[in-house]
Amino acid sequence: MLHIYCPYCEEYREEEEFRPKGEAHIARPAEPEATSDEAWGDYLFFRKNPRGLHHEQWYHAAGCRKFFNATRDTVSYQILETYKAGQQPTVTAAASGKKVAK
């Protein structure tokens, strides 16, 4: 059972209160009509899916019902940080100097 720190509730809560919602920081193309099929397909379907650090969205479904972001290792499942929607991660593969596990 993961214990997840909700940055809005400012508390650790159990995993069952939350729903993972996939990769974070995906920007919708500003002008959908002017976007090529490749770029639109990329936006809709193609995800980073890294083996290592992953910045992802979580939803505090049975709590404050807000979306926030987390940086999590997809091999160890360790959550390294959580941060509010709209903020940028402080733990990144580059910043931590941690070699992304293969």
Binding site: L2, N49, T74
Partner: peptide
């Protein structure tokens, strides 16, 4: 629900 490469999952 979450992405993972750990060949194990969660108790819930």
């Amino acid at each position: 629900g979450y992405n993972g490469y750990g060949q194990r999952g969660s108790y819930p």
